[in-house]
Design a protein around this nucleic acid. Structure first.
Lengths: 176, 176
DNA sequence: ATAGGTATGTTACGTTATAACTACCGAGAC
DNA sequence: GTCTCGGTAGTTATAACGTAACATACCTAT
């Protein structure tokens, strides 16, 4: 009851983090990440880049241990801290987001822009799409400030059923 | 980096889940819970009631294991499933909310009403206040539906610094 | 070359959550 | 009565998620 979980493989969903399809899309995202890190003078090391790539290539957002499994299957050494440190870096750079309700990580679609962290999470297939409404973000800040609350970060997670899964009628959970 | 954590004792904060102060407030909430469960023909058992009471009495929202510790110190038998099952019931009845970013649980302030699940979470003291803006909730639904997404539940968590902690200048984390 | 910083490897552990099975208890069927 | 059925709770074990602490490697600036 506490977390959103899913389990098997599937087709496609519009405007979604449906990686593993377009290598081109992934390559573009990785280049963008390189560019940003260079501009910021931070180190997108091979490991960090690879973790980002794994996330980008996942059909549904992977958890830390799913990422770790992939690193291991690369033949690379690894333990949980390996992944969590890379994730901390990527989170810090705004290159990935953490989905708190599901303990998974998604690549940010527009890492150069401001960071709202608003997501639609499909219960059926596990896929996540970004909402990214500035209006919403403003509304939240405004409401918080009415209570003299100083906002650091926002987190909006909408849980339900994506367009594709509604059509297909039944759950079609995706592998992580 | 992944979760919000806190640690020590403190003063008060307006419009907040600052339980342990007013027994009367807690009693009212418990009676309301009884009433709702009767109306719904669901069982607010002694255990479930006690878990709700523990949450209501906590200065800052407790995690499952903090609740478990209190159950044990009541002299009651207990293991994690004891708590998680009670929490599942209370979550299902809308009597408590889960704060995903911190893995803690808060009592709902208006369990009879609709359920937005919008919170202000203070990094310093760990206390959580409910936002409860229908306008916000509508805006989120609207935005989601623009993408043909069928909304089940929403989750808004705003992380920052509460009014009291801003004034006091420094962190004053509260005990769970 | 070596001292200092950053990144990663490694071991161990802490925290959060669930699976699976057992036991108990109350209500209705008979 | 007692049977059995559904729901609640006890119990054991383990899965899943995350971090602390320390060792190592590597780069680079003096």
């Amino acid at each position: 009851m506490l977390a959103i979980r899913t389990a098997v493989p599937v087709p496609a969903m519009a405007h979604t983090h449906r990686r593993g399809k377009s290598k081109a899309h992934v390559q573009r995202a990785l280049q963008e990440a390189e560019r940003l890190c260079q501009a910021r003078n931070t180190q997108l090391t091979e490991l960090r880049r690879r973790v980002l790539e794994i996330i980008l290539n996942s059909e549904a957002p992977p958890g830390a241990y799913a990422i770790l499994d992939q690193l291991k299957s690369d033949g690379r050494a690894g333990a949980p801290p390996t992944v969590y440190r890379a994730l901390d870096f990527l989170l810090g750079e705004g290159l990935v987001h953490r989905i708190a309700s599901a303990n998974v990580f998604v690549a940010c679609l527009h890492p150069a822009d401001s960071h709202s962290s608003q997501f639609l999470i499909c219960k059926d297939c596990g896929r996540i799409s970004e909402l990214d409404s500035q209006a919403l973000s403003y509304a939240i800040n405004e409401r918080a400030e009415q209570q003299d609350f100083k906002v650091d970060t926002q987190l909006v997670e909408v849980i339900g059923h994506c367009s594709a899964c509604q059509k297909s009628g039944s759950a079609q959970p995706v592998s992580h």
